[in-house]
């Protein structure tokens, strides 16, 4: 028979083990060789671009490009201007408009960014277009997909080559690559990024807008305008939202703009130029 103190100790021990309130530092399991993968090498960029290109192809498989050369040229000019001030100059960005009426924008690793026709229709000036593109650029500069799916390039060394041959890993790698692409597409189109990733992108986008010379308040304006529209669209389509609640984003944007002094900046909105390319 278990004595009461022993029983109490047993219950407490089990409770402690099952409690996630007091958490042990799991990093202790990490070994020294894991440090090797923390530094970027050129093969990582190649892998990211290859991965992103495949995702982009999948997106274009679902939604065709909006055939408007002038608009395509225009958003590339705006996007590449923003990219000049973005943190990853090794990425060559490509911007395109999708022939879809709903409001959304997507970014695939490696610099592939898409905005729907519906999203552009809801914009009122160039700074709002820049705000959307800056948000998507930020997903790429902060490597949200790359980190989540642990996209890494193979080191071109003898050890790496031999281990691939011995491990017969080429076919496994191809299967897993395809699976990762499937999951990433699903994430972009249906699940959306993690909430923290979205807030981080908003924050980076505000700075990027201001650095490029666009009105940083454009992000707030645009989100406020589409708030009701997106809710209606989601209700109509039955699709889960791919972004955090807009009210929460607006609050966060306000706070960041105040803290960073961005709300006091008086920068151009580019209304006239945007009007030339705007979709009626």
């Amino acid at each position: 028979m278990i004595q009461r103190p022993a029983l109490t100790t047993l219950v407490l021990t089990i409770s402690l083990l099952f409690s996630s309130a007091i958490q042990a530092d799991e990093n202790f399991r990490s070994r020294a060789h894991h440090e090797n993968s923390n530094t970027d090498i050129s093969e990582d960029i190649d892998a990211e671009i290859r991965f992103g290109k495949t995702i982009a192809a999948r997106i274009l498989g679902q939604f065709p490009l909006y055939e408007n050369e002038k608009l395509a040229h225009y958003i590339n000019l705006v996007g590449k201007s923003l990219a000049l001030y973005a943190s990853r100059d090794e990425i060559d960005y490509h911007f395109a408009v999708l022939d879809a009426d709903f409001i959304n924008a997507y970014s695939a690793p490696g610099g592939y960014i898409f905005v729907t026709k519906g999203a552009i229709k809801a914009m009122r000036d160039e700074s709002e277009l820049a705000a959307v593109l800056a948000h998507e650029i930020a997903h790429i500069t902060e490597k949200h997909i790359v980190k989540e799916f642990k996209i890494k390039g193979k080191e071109k060394s003898a050890t790496s080559g031999i281990s691939q041959i011995l491990g017969s890993s080429q076919s496994s790698a191809q299967v897993l690559f395809t699976q990762a692409v499937d999951n990433a597409v699903n994430k972009l189109m249906k699940e959306g990024f993690k909430q923290n990733d979205e807030f981080e992108s908003d924050k980076v986008a505000l700075t990027l807008l201001a650095a490029t010379g666009y009105d940083p308040k454009a992000m707030y304006r645009y989100l406020k305008r589409i708030q009701k529209l997106t809710i209606q669209e989601e209700k109509k389509s039955g699709q889960k939202p791919t972004h955090p609640p807009t009210s929460k984003r607006l609050k966060t944007l306000n706070r960041i703009a105040k803290n960073d002094g961005l709300n006091k900046l008086k920068l151009p909105k580019g209304k006239k130029r945007f009007a030339k390319y705007a979709i009626k």
Partner: peptide, 10 residues
């Protein structure tokens, strides 16, 4: 004895 690269080891 193990030798590690970023994504593989022998």
């Amino acid at each position: 004895l193990s030798h590690f690269t970023r994504t593989s080891s022998i």
